[in-house]
């Protein structure tokens, strides 16, 4: 009798949790409640003070980007007068970096601010158990929050991207070609995925850490690590594994050293993103890996077409998406298994 009971409990567990088979009406309610949460999250973000901070930050970045581009444009055109529209994004002057590099550095901050207290603030406010006692699945909560963040990031990235284009268009008066527009579009999509990765990362910390201050600090630490220390670390490891100190070593190891360094760097989403967008926004970049002289024999010195550029950085996009989904999945699983009781 006792054993039988245990079995029935165990088999019950496998299809229990909060999914299982449900009538259609329930499914409808499921989307309904997720939509309600999504809507509330959007309102929350937009009316919050932190959104103002993001807005200021992004506006400053955009203005700096435009300023840098307009100033440095003359020099850039003197070097190469093709794809001038793209140069709006990639050109900086001596003192001001380009919009592209600005975004790679500042973009994560946007994701972090939107996500660092997604779950733990609900827990600390005592709203999480009230929310979960409504007819809403636990996964809807985290998915709804993530989607709201991604939507906001998309809106922001597209509006600033278009703003730069428009400003440049007005100040230098050059019409973009279709290819340039497509390249900008692809660039903006990469940026959205990149910032979404940081949103997912911040949400992961918000699930794991009890206090929002802890999760914010942890996320910022990770950001600084990837933006600054990862390349140093990669260099050190590569030099240890494949030393290039003596002439013989240099001759023998330099390719391996370079590759090791490159692959390690590519673990960092910051590097992955930077490499991908500089390839897309700069059609003269023909390869992202080391190329030997023999491979270059007979190559025409021309620009890559959009399709070829995309082919080069396709794995980067997949990598970024995989990282984002990975971070999201971990926070999802953690959240689903967490005890609801706060404090």
């Amino acid at each position: 009798m006792e054993a039988q009971k245990t079995v029935s409990v165990l088999s019950g567990k496998s299809n229990s949790s909060e999914t299982g088979t449900l009538p259609k009406e329930n499914r409808k309610l499921h989307y309904h409640s997720m939509a309600a949460l999504y809507r509330k999250e959007m309102t929350d973000h937009i009316t919050s003070k932190r959104f103002l901070i993001i807005l200021l930050l992004v506006t400053a970045t955009t203005i700096a980007g435009i300023y840098g581009a307009v100033n440095g444009m003359a020099d850039a055109i003197a070097n190469d007068s093709n794809f001038i529209f793209l140069k709006l994004y990639t050109t900086g002057s001596n003192s001001v970096p380009s919009y592209l590099s600005f975004m790679a550095l500042i973009g994560p901050f946007v994701g972090l601010i939107l996500g660092f207290d997604a779950i733990n603030s609900e827990r600390n406010n005592g709203t999480l158990n009230r929310l979960l006692s409504q007819p809403i699945y636990r996964d809807s909560v985290i998915i709804g929050k993530f989607l709201a963040g991604v939507s906001l990031i998309s809106i922001m990235v597209f509006s600033t991207g278009i703003l730069i284009g428009t400003a440049g268009f007005l100040s230098i008066g050059i019409l973009p070609s279709a290819e340039e527009l497509f390249r900008v579009l692809v660039y903006l999509i990469y940026t959205i995925v990149y910032i979404s990765f940081w949103l997912a990362m911040a949400m992961l910390f918000s699930v794991v850490c009890r206090h929002s201050a802890t999760s914010a600090l942890a996320a910022i630490a990770l950001w600084i690590f990837f933006a600054i220390f990862m390349s140093l670390l990669a260099g050190i490891i590569a030099n240890l594994a494949y030393p290039v100190d003596t002439q013989y070593n240099a001759l023998y190891n330099s390719l391996s050293n370079y590759n090791c360094n490159l692959y390690l760097n590519r673990i960092s989403p910051y590097y992955l993103y930077s490499e991908a967008v500089s390839t897309i926004m700069n059609p003269s970049v023909r390869a992202v890996n080391a190329v030997t002289m023999s491979q270059l024999v007979g190559a025409l010195s021309s620009y890559l077409s959009l399709g070829q550029s995309l082919l080069l950085v396709w794995p980067h996009l997949l990598g970024l998406i995989a990282l984002t989904l990975g971070a999201f999945t971990i926070s999802y699983v953690k959240f689903m298994r967490q005890e609801i009781r706060g404090n």
Binding site: G20, N26, L29, G126
Partner: peptide, 24 residues
């Protein structure tokens, strides 16, 4: 456990120290 969605539709819960979104 298995039908928690339906249960939560007919059950209201007032937690101890009930919290609301402070900015709303």
């Amino acid at each position: 456990t298995r039908n928690s969605m339906l249960v939560k539709r007919i059950t209201g819960y007032l937690p101890d120290n009930v919290g609301f979104y402070p900015d709303m």
